[in-house]
Design a protein around this nucleic acid. Sequence first.
DNA 1: TCAAAAGTGTTATCACTACACCCATGG
DNA 2: CCATGGGTGTAGTGATAACACTTTTGA
Lengths: 228, 228
Amino acid sequence: MLVAVDCIIFGFDGTDYKILLIQRGFAPEKEKWSLMGGFVQMDETLDEAAKRILNQLTGLHDVYMDQMSAFSQPLRDPIERVIAVPYVSLIDIEKYSKQINNDFHAKWFSIREIPKLIFDHGDMVELALQQLRYKAALHPILFELLPEKFTLPQLQTMYEGLYDIKLDKRNFTRKLLSSNLLHKENDKDKSSSKKGAYYYSLNEDFYTRNLSNILPIVSKSDISLAAE
Amino acid sequence: MLVAVDCIIFGFDGTDYKILLIQRGFAPEKEKWSLMGGFVQMDETLDEAAKRILNQLTGLHDVYMDQMSAFSQPLRDPIERVIAVPYVSLIDIEKYSKQINNDFHAKWFSIREIPKLIFDHGDMVELALQQLRYKAALHPILFELLPEKFTLPQLQTMYEGLYDIKLDKRNFTRKLLSSNLLHKENDKDKSSSKKGAYYYSLNEDFYTRNLSNILPIVSKSDISLAAE
DNA sequence: TCAAAAGTGTTATCACTACACCCATGG
DNA sequence: CCATGGGTGTAGTGATAACACTTTTGA
């Protein structure tokens, strides 16, 4: 029996959530779009395999990764029995584009326009999104999608996009600022307005201490449909 | 590479949380205490394997089961490479004792007195408990541990035991009753007091609809230490 | 009759929601 | 000078937390 790891790699470009897909260079399903994946080697853990595979594609290290439930339908891969363990990763889309590895013909797709994927990769993506919505409502993980410095309007757009909701600017700002997660910078981002929006950065200490704590950003009613 | 499933089976006896362990009848680690487990067959999914293995030991069907993250240290099993996928199950301890299968020398252990387990099973149990605490704080899953009819004091003891906290009886009652999860029966349980406590049963419809929704029973501060 | 557990209300505090105007700037 | 997006405060409402006495009944 083989065990594989598949990476669902999320990015956010300021407007849309994207996932990174590759075009398979080998049979079966050559040329079809697929998640980046690979077999687990005899001397590595699943986490190590996932890191290795993500690094192969993106060149990135130290990326947020989260193991999902295994996919184990006996016939999910028509050639042989492969149990797949998907990993959700969140990356800063800008960091990636600097380190791109073109061997895999990778491309970002908006999550609203995902092509048909091989095997059960489509289900994996759907589940990954559900889980992202669930988890992001309780824990401040979405910061992983942003660059070091970001603005409050960017942050808000990111949350609004994930749940397809409108949030109140004032309430959102208050909640985030009172969370102690943010550190205000002195400079502004003027790319999207004339006035400019102040940059913020993560309070790293506080962030790592609180990643596993419950710290809801959106309200319960917004996530009820997205439960794990 | 082999893939195995291990079952962490929780029960609650009215006072303590217990897990069901077996005494291994074969090498390696013969006679040592261990989780009930088994290899995944070529024609079954992981969920099916977990159900099969749980049924072998307990005789039970339709049990709450939840897949955890895989354990994949290359040397976790000294004989050969086995990736283990643990499953948390919650069962009504009374139902089990009626259907006990003695082939496996199974025994309930209080979670405060768990013996040394083989391989990394001890870590699995610890992680399972953490996850149970996390999940039970957000979703009404602990009912799976109780018989059809139960009392509010029982329920409260169960929550208090899991988090090692004291809850206010009035606030707890109010929260549970306002949740719509419970249906009051006409009879009382007189086994633990002279006055007797009314039995309640689950509103099944509402329960299944809301299992995946967020419905906190204990407060955030109680679960912060137990995050996934 | 009394010991032991069950049941029941009220108030204060805190978190969440809704809502509208002024500010700064580049063009 | 004006169009555009950024920034800020307050009041009402609902949820949570703290708190103590009465009821029932078997022994």
